[in-house]
């Protein structure tokens, strides 16, 4: 495997890990809110969260590119903060991937929260547990299987990202050239052997982490 392949692999893993961590932080409160709100616009938010599942990555990538560009709302914000613009940078890739993988993290956690009986949280309240305490000591442990699913789906889905990366990240070695793009380059250059090597790694990695998910009969434990 060439140093360029290793760089791409490392970049991909870094991206997937960072995006998954960010999504768990953003997705948990969003999932909690979606699982418990009775607001009438809840379906709107749910549909927005689910959009990346059905939208062609190029469409999502295009809108994100425009939004993060110098005249877009995200671009205006990052420029106002003195951060420049995000397209064609690793930071831009992270932001785009967060949108791209959002449903794969939010949905399993939301479902896990929704199946926790409200009665258990009430019981915890009568046992002197405040709202945050109830969330931490009852909801989180009981939703653990949902969090495992969310982590694995979020990570695996970001790992395989291609269209969105090309649209907002381009193909900059060490900055935005992830494994899927590197494989594409190898195939374009008719380097089938190198493409095989990286593809096999991605296939093996994806299969292994999904195997962890499906093989583990998780009891009530985080």
């Amino acid at each position: 495997m060439s140093p360029a392949d290793l760089t791409a692999l490392w970049l991909t893993l870094k991206l997937a890990a960072l995006v998954t961590a960010l999504l768990l932080v953003i997705g948990t409160p969003l999932a909690w809110w979606l699982a418990h709100t009775q607001r009438r616009f809840k379906p709107v938010i749910e549909a927005l969260v689910a959009l990346p599942i059905v939208l062609p990555p190029s469409v999502l990538g295009f809108y994100l590119l425009v939004a993060m560009g110098p005249h877009g709302p995200i671009g205006a914000l990052t420029q106002a903060l003195g951060l420049g613009t995000l397209p064609f940078s690793f930071a831009g890739l992270v932001v785009a991937s967060v949108f791209y993988s959002l449903p794969f993290v939010v949905q399993p956690i939301q479902q896990a929260f929704a199946t926790i009986p409200v009665g258990l949280l009430e019981a915890a309240a009568t046992l002197r547990a405040g709202p945050w305490d109830r969330f931490r000591s009852v909801a989180l442990p009981l939703a653990a299987p949902g969090f495992l699913t969310a982590t694995i789906f979020g990570f695996a889905h970001t790992l395989g990202e291609f269209g969105v990366v090309l649209m907002v990240g381009g193909n900059i070695a060490g900055e935005t050239r992830v494994v899927s793009v590197q494989i594409y380059d190898h195939v374009e250059a008719l380097e089938y052997g190198a493409a095989h090597g990286l593809s096999l790694i991605l296939l093996g990695l994806s299969f292994s982490i999904l195997l962890v998910l499906y093989a583990r009969r998780l009891p009530w434990r985080l």
């Binding site: 258990l120 009430e122 915890a124 305490d133 009852v138 442990p141 009530w220 434990r221």
Partner: peptide, 20 residues
């Protein structure tokens, strides 16, 4: 005063034990 700040004990119809 919210439930968790009242010095009460509450037994529900279903036991509501924490399964974990």
């Amino acid at each position: 005063v919210p439930a968790h700040q009242r010095p009460i004990g509450f037994v529900f119809q279903d036991a509501r034990l924490f399964p974990h």
